[in-house]
Design a protein around this nucleic acid. Sequence first.
DNA 1: AGTGGCTCCTGGCGGC
DNA 2: TGCCGCCAGGAGCCAC
Length: 308
Amino acid sequence: MPELPEVETVRRRLQACLPGLLLRRVVVHDWTVSAQTEEELNGYLAGRRVARLRRRGKYLLVDLEAGPAAGDGPAVAVVHLRMTGQLVFRLEPGDRPPRFTWELEPDAALHFLDMRRFGRLWALDPEDEDGFFAARGLGPEPFGPEFTVAYLRDALAGRRALLKNFLLDQRRVAGVGNIYADEALFRARLHPLRAAGSVGPREARRLHAALLETLQAGIDHEGSSIESFIDPAGRRGSFQEILNVYQRTGEPCRVCGEQIERTVVGGRGTHYCPRCQPRRGGMAPGSRRRPGSARSIGRRGPRGELIG
DNA sequence: AGTGGCTCCTGGCGGC
DNA sequence: TGCCGCCAGGAGCCAC
């Protein structure tokens, strides 16, 4: 499921080939993909050249230059992949029909495949972009200047919400989804069922570092191809190969050997190591070495995978 | 206001 | 073998 690292991987791939191409028109095959009609979308987007690609949280943004016709101002296309959205240049035999297609010049097309049909497309005036994200309450970018240890500490303070739910709340920090939330909590040695407000200053610092390290590792591995994530060239990411807890229920913890446990938080599968991530703070029992500690960073597991 | 729960959507899978 | 029901989850919406 596309989270920040997966969307960033798509952004980088498209940034390498879309800028300069002309978006001739948008064809909507499934009207539920957008609250705007095909005509409205084309009014914003058709006849413009792609300038560059950006990302905000899990949203992919395509900046379009003003067109040659009078009144064809610049525009921003916003795409959210949600669960199963994919942007691809080629349809393979057996692919279901795309939900929308961008016809490009010279001679190309970008198709939006989306089995579960949760993905969305918006076309905006650039002046309305900040309002668009403000209306959704989108929080700071993890790699942006706002997301400091102090910010995270203050955001956690006093909250009764479970830590897992806190991380999934896009208003607190943008871009974290179920996989990276579980992996970051493991790296930070924090139990997902702890109240956000119970996290102390040192733990907040750990969580901040763990979030950045986990997301960066995801980007470095070009995302997790768990469900159906592929990039626009049809390539799969490899982060799923080094997951520590996500979907490893019953398997041994890579750090302490304890069996990974699974519970449900907010309707989402939640995976953790009961020994490395105790409900109360403190040292993991029977071990001085803990996941995410300086000594464990960069260690290699039995199959050569990076741990932590 | 903060928080949790429900809903959408469909392929895949377990159970009978 | 076939069919039923459940599971996966991002985020908008609603209720408390």
